[in-house]
Amino acid sequence: MLDPADEAPLLELRGLTYTATTATLLDDVSAALPATGVTAIIGANGAGKTTLLRLLAGLLTPTAGEIDWSLAGSARRTAMVFQRPVILRRSVDANIRHAIAPLGLNEAEAARRVDEALAVCRLDHLRTAPARRLSGGEQQRLALARALARKPDVLLLDEPCASLDPQSTAAIEAIVRQAAAASTAVVLVTHDIAQAQRLAAWVMFLDAGRLIEHSRAGAFFAGPQTAEARDYLAGRLPPIAPGDEGS
């Protein structure tokens, strides 16, 4: 399915497939991702959401198909925030500096980006603090600050609020909204349907590794086109396959 995104697409997925040793985790996914706004990837556990995100981040190599980044220009730049943030054993600002070091910026620009990322993520007061001493919410904001300092074309978020309280979740969502408003494409994997409704402009619904719906968020949540999406949004569990009753 190649979605006719009516905004300028940033990249195209063409027949993207990923097969692990024993199973196909992503099966022939084709879509165009818009250059701005938040695209939420939703679906049940095992639907292939994180696999798709890891393929976009370059952490996995597709078994078949391709991701066409040519629309983004020659320098593709992604930044990924993981469900459990990986915090380096150094200070808050040193974590951000480490993330932008591969970009080869001059000192003035690097310092400017650190300041800006700290301000956006409201971490100025913790600039020199040991990063691993931050609270869970602060650590996830630091992970976002590191990602934003790289000024990515695509910001990839893998359930960034999964283990956060409502206050921290609201803080993360505010930063994501700000990034999307500043012309960064955001791809958000989430199990939180309310969060997807709050943030997303587009929704990709995956089921058993297949992309079965890709539409504007408003249209998707108002009237999903497939039975699988309707069941998922209604919280109806899929039928148990024959032979799985006892498991």
Partner: peptide
Amino acid sequence: AEYDDYLRSLGLGIGGRLRTLLWD
């Protein structure tokens, strides 16, 4: 085991990852 995905997501080659791991 903790850092690998993150360091790869930054596009760091083996030299950059090695330096980060040795320092941390």
